[in-house]
């Protein structure tokens, strides 16, 4: 007999809900640096996009995934210090002020949706301690805990979001063939899982990665000064 037992607490469906681009947490207005890279002529086709996404996944994607996994574990602790430490760790790993502001803004937007969907004291505490918004991976990890997900699931969400947003943005900005972009994302799937596993391992060992990509920081700062832009980041 095949095992038809669903994951406990509907965790699989919750994971799908959080990963859905239609979940109202503000992601649709952010390109993850893709808008600036397109304007700079650095992304012109799906090959450039694939390289951009690979670079992003293995740098800020890995760092965010590890922070999210660590936050899921830390959210079990009623003492908020651990989450605050992770928020400071995220600050130090985000040297670009534009990206720090983006991360806190998206954190605040996710927290709004999470508190409506999965009300939980850990989310309330986070909102009270960070009225201007905690970093997005910290909120994502806390949300995962509130929704009954594991650190690994939080990490996979962060890794997925690090590539999904810019891919969608490039469909809109460049008119790329959406099927080819879907194929690019599909081919990244094994790397997404590998990065997730690496992030979870690092979070468990308490050795958070700090992987970064130089152009992402530089492009984010340039983008933040534009008067005319379509995406918030």
């Amino acid at each position: 007999m095949p095992d038809r037992t669903p994951a406990p607490g509907g965790a699989t469906a919750v994971l799908l809900l959080l990963a859905d681009g239609r979940f109202p947490a503000g992601g649709h207005a952010h390109s993850g640096g893709a808008e600036a890279a397109v304007r700079a002529g650095r992304i012109r086709d799906q090959d450039d996009l694939a390289a951009f996404l690979t670079g992003r996944l293995h740098t800020t994607g890995l760092t965010a995934a590890a922070l999210a996994a660590a936050a899921t574990a830390a959210a079990t602790d009623p003492d908020p210090d651990r989450l605050d430490d992770l928020d400071r760790a995220a600050d130090a790993r985000t040297p670009s002020p534009a990206l720090r502001a983006t991360s806190r803004r998206l954190g605040r937007q996710l927290l709004r949706a999470a508190r409506a969907a999965w009300p939980h004291p850990a989310l309330d505490r986070l909102a009270d301690r960070h009225p201007r918004g905690a970093h997005h991976p910290v909120v994502l990890g806390t949300t995962a805990h509130a929704a009954g997900l594991t650190p690994a699931q939080a990490a996979s969400l962060a890794a997925y979001e690090s590539v999904n947003g810019p891919a969608t943005a490039c469909v809109r900005l460049l008119g790329l063939d959406p099927y080819r972009v879907a194929a690019v994302l599909a081919r990244l799937a094994p790397e997404l899982d590998a990065v997730t596993a690496e992030a979870v391992r690092a979070a468990e060992q308490g050795d958070l990665p700090a992987a970064s990509a130089p152009l992402l920081d530089i492009l984010a700062e340039q983008h933040s000064t534009w008067k005319v832009r379509l995406f918030a980041s």
Partner: peptide, 14 residues
């Protein structure tokens, strides 16, 4: 993000 209707209807968070 190129989707003005999303920002006022589907995902109003911003």
């Amino acid at each position: 993000g190129c989707c003005p209707h999303t920002a006022i209807r589907d995902d109003i968070s911003a």
